[in-house]
Amino acid sequence: MLIVISATFFMVHAAPGGPFDDERVASPEILQQLNDTYNLNDPLLSQLGNYLLNAIQGDFGPSYKYPGRSVSELIFSGLPITMELALYSILFALFLGILSGILASLNPGKLLDHLPMSVSMIGICVPSIILGPMLILTFGIWFEILPVSGWGEFPGDKVLPTITLGSAYAAIFARLTRGGMLEILAQDFIRTARAKGLNETRVVLYHALRGGIMPTVGFLGPAIAGLFAGSFVVETIFQINGIGRYYVQAAFNRDYTLILGISILITFFTLTFVLLSDILATYLNPRLREKGSMN
């Protein structure tokens, strides 16, 4: 985490232009004053040291672009929206991905396998920056059935961002589920279950799926972290006021503290979710569990 902060810190300071450059040029005296106020004239290393010291205490500093607003305040105004978007997207991705993964694994080599798998290949390949505008064009402009931007402002405006952000992950989940399921379905205990005369739905959804979604669960952590990163693009396309938009704007404005604050948050989420998904995978998988308890 320290590495990420330091790297971000030096990168934002290396970019040309500063937070106080404006079309209407301020006199050199004023710029000097502004830089003094925010300690931007100090050597970079001492700036970094000060920043880290404050950040550990939970103070991410003031925003340069919005005087009188602290970075924490800005982040907390946007975070709930980004989290909501990420949550809907992951649920959408899980539902669509697992469902089509199961369908495909039950019909290997048939149309119901090839169709979802080819669609998912497209889903992985088309980035959200293209998928978003395509969906806007189709559902928003041609058919005029869904709003093309906003979040919680017009009925149904949460649909397209959710699909745009979730699709790529739905596609990955579908492929992972299919692979996992095929492996499990070929195993002895499934044959036993079927031999016992259990109905197929119960075999698939109860016995096989528990093992079959393991790869998906394992990938959940990186996926959620990735969703946060992906939400930057989606929030910009759909004009959603989450932290992703702040991040992009902060980069354009050279709002150093805001960029750093959000970077720290994203790093924190990535590490946390990867850890959580590892724990969840251990819990779900009896084999991993036993290995752990034997040690």
Partner: peptide, 19 residues
């Protein structure tokens, strides 16, 4: 449990703004 998810998603799709 998996069927709770579609119901949830459906509810987002029709959710109105509470502004």
């Amino acid at each position: 449990k998996i069927f709770i998810i579609p119901i949830f998603i459906l509810s987002i799709f029709i959710s109105c703004s509470s502004q």
